[in-house]
Structure formats: structure tokens, C-alpha cells
Design a binder for these strands. Sequence first.
DNA 1: GGCTGCGAGACTCG
DNA 2: TCACGAGTCTCGCAGCC
Length: 574
Amino acid sequence: HMRGFSLCDGKKTCYVNIDVPDREDLLNELNYCLQHRGSFQKLIMHNAPFDLKVLHKEGCTEVTSQIFCTQTAAHLINENIPNDLKYLAQHILKVSDTLTYAQAERYGYNSPEFIEYATNDAIWTWQLHEYFNRVLYQQKLDKLFYEVEMPFQFVLMDLAINGVQIDDVEIDRLDKIVSKDILDMEFKLRDLAGIKYQTQGNLFIEEMEVLSGTNMRSSQQLVDIIQNRLGLVIEEKTDTGNPSVGKATLLRLKGQHDFIDLLRKYKTATKLSQGFLKPFPGFYDADGRVRGSVNNCIARTGRLSMSKPNNQQLPKLNKEYPIDFRATIIAPEGRSLIVSDYGGQELRVLTQITKDKGLIDAFQNDKDIHLETTNKSFDLGIPDECLYSRHPDHEKIKKENKADRDKTKNCVVFPIIYGTTAYGVSQNLAVSEEVAQGYIDDFLDLYPGVREGIERCSAYLKTHKYVYTLSGRRRRLYDLTPKAYRQAFNFLIQGYSADMIRLAATNVRNAGLAHPEWDMKIVLIVHDEIVVEVNDEYIEEAKAAVKEGMETAVQMCVPLVTEIGVGKKYSEAK
DNA sequence: GGCTGCGAGACTCG
DNA sequence: TCACGAGTCTCGCAGCC
């Protein structure tokens, strides 16, 4: 419920209380100004998606003015400092005394204190714009800001309004299955470890409890059980040097004791239960949708993040414990989900950055980069022509060498874009550091442009203490540790990818606006993936529009391809 | 004895 | 010291009333 709004034009400031009998008239007046370009030359807001969402709720659905989000500007200009209005007012505008909303509210909505709080909001936002707008041009961030970020604010507004539809009955069904499985495993794990326990049933027999001093969710207690009761050796260490009972340890100990194997399943089940099935109902809105908050100004690389809940980390189907959580994200009756993601986005961006001839050839002619790297590192002797997907033997050879190819892909090629070292690769592949360095060199010899690209990035960082992406986004790294050089190169890829998805989502939104009959809604963005909801009669048209919007988001030296699926459930459409 | 805050550790995703 | 970017949950301890 909007109580009022404040405005500032640099000369005058006002607070408009709309909790009055002629509320409707005031909102109509505001709506008229927002709809007619020229009433506001520029609409300046701090956290524009929030304000746009509130206006939208009040019926102000069309904003034709140019917009300026001071929070986004602050993030582009310095991604390393907080960007809430209060912090910026204190540190950039040097304002000393600031009230919080809760403090102002206590004085009452008609008090001078509350009105001062409200008008300060507008004054500070105005003043920040004056300063940031200049800096955006000085740092050559204006194009990114006005052409990528500001149009994208409306997508962020849509995401905040839309949310995703949840199948609450299915959540409930899965929750019951998983809860029962967990309880069964609680007993079996104790039996396997030789731990005595008692059971206690309350009124409902299925809600039996295990009474014993041990907690299978405690890492400390698991270390004790595995070492002292099972007599197994834990070699892996946590960051602080303690024995680790994480994935790597359990994978290595797999098959050595039934307890270990069941524990792996137990961990998957408890994560599913405690991380998703139990907390999700707490996020349902009255219409059965979940609206997590989408953060445009948190990740230093320019990526989006989500919280409460984080819909970017919904579990995928796990073969060893197949509970399909993503099947609980659905489309309403008469509608479907379209899920579209970029194929090999990061490697394509790497190609665009480095202009490496081998990578360009690979993407232009469908050559299998992972197989080519595997071929070189493992001396497979595959003829060059068989590395192209058009060759009749390619599929067969790819299958025959699947294990090595997967290893290369996950342990050599991807880690290189994270900047991994020979040590890291050697740990992953359980080989010596020399052998690992050999693999890295093989890749960089195959695609020498990548080595040059990394060196160019490092040299630039060393001189300037920042680097910038193809879209002009900057990352400032003042402490030039080895980690900073890895972050810098990874940022070139991750940061540009993030701006690609912004442009793509804006294209998709515009396509939807041009065809209101489709009723196409963007409901989720997951880094390289866009999920939309659309009326069933227009699936084909919408699919074509999503594909077009994503594939034409930017021009690159290699084609941009999308993988696209349709379904009634999120998991069906992927 | 119970509440709150915080770091460690583990796990989810791209 | 060793692989980039996020968010969230539980445990176990410290400090407080």
C-alpha cells in the first residue's frame, strides 16, 4: 500500500500524502505524468525496480519517461562498496544525521520528522544523480547504463511482480516422501554405525522420533563416527584444517562402508527437505506464487542474484535420490513454461574476448572443443576431421571417449576460465602437478589466443587496478594478489555474459509487449537461462520470439545458440 | 535456562 | 596459496539477561 511519494527537481521538494479522500485523483494525476513523455524529463529513483513495482500496483503501469536508477549507477561506479541510499548519502553527499524508516514512522505519518525523512529521500536521490551522471560519462559507463541497465529495470520490475507459480500439493507430497525417507535413514544410519537409540512416537505414529545423543547433521559428530566407529581415515581438510566430511571425502570413501553410502543419500535428502521443501511454503503469496527478491546490484561481476527464496539454486534431479523438486514450479492452467538457455555461453564469450582462431573455427564449424583438447592431452590419435560434428564418425568417437572427454571438460577446460592452477587441476584429477600443468599447456597451445588474452588482462590489471568487459562494465581490484588476476579474467567472461542476458531479457520483454495476446511473462532468469510463461495458443510464436531475442542480444564473431524447451513444469521444459 | 549473534562447514545453482 | 560468482541451512559456541 502506497502511503505517499516525494519529489524533488533540484529546486523544490515536496511530499505528497495520498492517504486522503482524493487519493484516486492524485494517483490519476501521477499516472498522467508518467504516461506522457515530457512531464518528467527524467524519472530518477533509488532502486528503480522497487518504485516501478509499487507504481504498477497502484495502476501506474506505463512509464514513458527516461529513467535513472541511482543504485545501479552507484554499483557500476564502485561495485566494492554498499549502495543503499543511507550509506551513499553519508559517504558521498556527506550527510551526517539520517533517520531510519522505522524511526521516522514512530513520529507519525503527518509529523515533520516523517515528512523530512520522505523528502530527504528525494533530495539525496536528486543529488546523487547530479554526481553519478557525470561519473558515468567520465568512466565510459554511460552506454552500459543507459542502453543496457535502464531498459533492464523494467524486466526486474516484471520479475518482482510475476514470481513463479508453485504446485503446493506437489510440494506437500514430496515433503511427506522425503520426511519419511529421512526418518528411515536416521534409524539405519545408527544401526550401521552401532549407535544405540530409543524411539518415541507421539500421537501420530509416522512422526516417530529417534532418541539418541548423536546428530547426523553435525559435521563434528560425523567425523567422530567415521574415524572412531567405522575406523576409516579422513584425509580431506576443511578451510580451517579440520577433517572434512563433505562430498569429496564421501565420494572417496564410497563403497568402503554401508554407512558412507547411506550417508550420501541422507545428505541429499536432508538438503532437499530443509533447504527447499520445508521453507518454500513460507514464501507463498495469496495467489500461490513465490516472489523472491531479485538483486541487480550485489554481485561484483554484474550477475543477478536472488534471495528469499533463491530461485537460482533450485535443485536439479539427482539420479541417486530422484526427487523432482523442479516439477513443483509450474505454469497456471492454460499456460506453459518456455525455458531457454545459451549453449556454451562462457566458451563463446571467451572466444569473442580472445578472438582465438582455433576457437572461432570450432564454433563456426561445429568442432568439438572438449574432444579436441582430450585428443591432444591423452594422445588419442583422432584425425582432425573426426572432431567436427558433421563427420559421420564423430558421435561414435565422442561416445567411446566419453569418460576422458568429461574429465577434460570439467577438470581442465572450465577451470581454466576460473583461472585454476596446476595444483588445482592435479587435485581434481588425482595426478601429479607436472601432468596437470601439461594438460593446461595443451589447452593453451591448442588455443594460443586464450593465453594471450589472459596475459593481456593481467597486464591491464597491473597498470590500471581495474579491468573492463566488452560491454564496458568495470571491476576494480586494488590488492593485486594472484587471486585478483584470476578474478579479473573470469570477470571478463562472467560480466559480459551477465550483460548479454540483460539485453536478451529486454528483447524478450519487448516482444511480449508487442503481442499482448500471448500474455508472455518473464518469471525467472538464471544466469544463462530465461524462463517465460505464456498462453498455450501462442507457444510457437513465443518460442520463436524468445529464441530470436536471445540469439540477437549481441553480435559476436561466433554464432549464439539457444537450447529451448516447453512444458507445464520447470523440469519438463528443460 | 533460554535467547541471540556469529563463524564454520556443507550444500544448492550457473 | 592453490577454482569464478552467489544464498541458505544447521551446528556449536560465546555472551547476555
